[in-house]
């Protein structure tokens, strides 16, 4: 599903973020990406979305060579990938339902189908009763649920979560991770970059550890 072959990334300012990374993530896998700050986790995720291009090596996402995609092909790659961030990135002037529908607008889904899918994901994330509420009336955990709902409403092949629990208390963090697990069980590949030791150690999923731009450990039922 996702393949990195000898991928190196040097940012335009000269920072070497990744060095000869090899990584294969299969369909339906759940993977934790761990490592100290600056080790290159976010860079790996940005290479998957095509936001950054590899300086060397090859990144494949469901058979698409991301580094070689033309600019106007990138949007179609993005529609196969859901992304969730630490800071939620919701639009304050749109309701919960509108925020989620926002992601379907760009692929020109019909209004009726949009309503159906929004209702579906709201149910999945347990926020059906808050559909008409604005983000600033929600708790952090609820906001992250909305942002996850927005990320999966397009039925993406893979969900990338960059420290999705970074702004949340331990209990709420657990709820979010459980939600990600549920989504994973429905067939979506999930890659989560995190600093949260407890979660990684408890869940016993595949763990890829990074340090200074290299993968230093890859365990099937790993710990932090």
């Amino acid at each position: 599903m996702i393949n990195f072959f000898e991928v190196s990334k040097i940012y335009p300012n000269g920072t070497a973020a990744l060095y000869r990374i090899n990584l294969t993530v299969g369909k339906g896998e759940f993977l934790f990406l761990v490592g100290p700050s600056g080790s290159g986790k976010s860079t790996v995720l940005r290479l998957i979305t095509g936001e950054e291009k590899p300086t060397e090596g090859k990144v494949l996402v469901s058979d698409l060579n991301v580094g070689r995609l033309r600019r106007r092909e990138i949007p179609y790659l993005r529609r196969k990938i859901g992304v969730v961030f630490q800071d939620f990135r919701l639009l304050p002037n749109l309701t919960v339902a509108e925020n989620i529908a926002f992601a379907l607008e760009v692929s020109e889904v019909k209004p009726k189908e949009t309503r159906r899918r929004v209702r579906q994901v709201l149910e999945l994330v347990g926020l059906s009763h808050k559909a008409a509420i604005y983000p600033d009336e929600l708790s952090g955990g609820e906001r992250q649920r909305v942002s996850i709902a927005r990320a999966i409403v397009n039925n993406p092949l893979v969900l990338l979560a960059d420290e999705p629990t970074g702004n949340l208390d331990p209990e709420t963090s657990w709820e979010i991770v459980k939600l990600l697990e549920t989504i994973n069980q429905r067939g979506t590949t999930v890659i989560m970059a995190t600093h949260n030791e407890t979660i990684v150690n408890t869940l016993q999923k595949r763990v890829v550890a990074m340090a200074e731009g290299r993968t230093v450990r890859d365990e099937r039922r790993g710990t932090y």
Binding site: P75, Y76, L77, R78, R79, V83, F102, V106, N154
Partner: peptide, 11 residues
């Protein structure tokens, strides 16, 4: 956000 969720440039 539009770019993130796959909006084309013309959109």
């Amino acid at each position: 956000i539009r770019r993130l969720v796959g909006a084309t440039n013309s959109f």
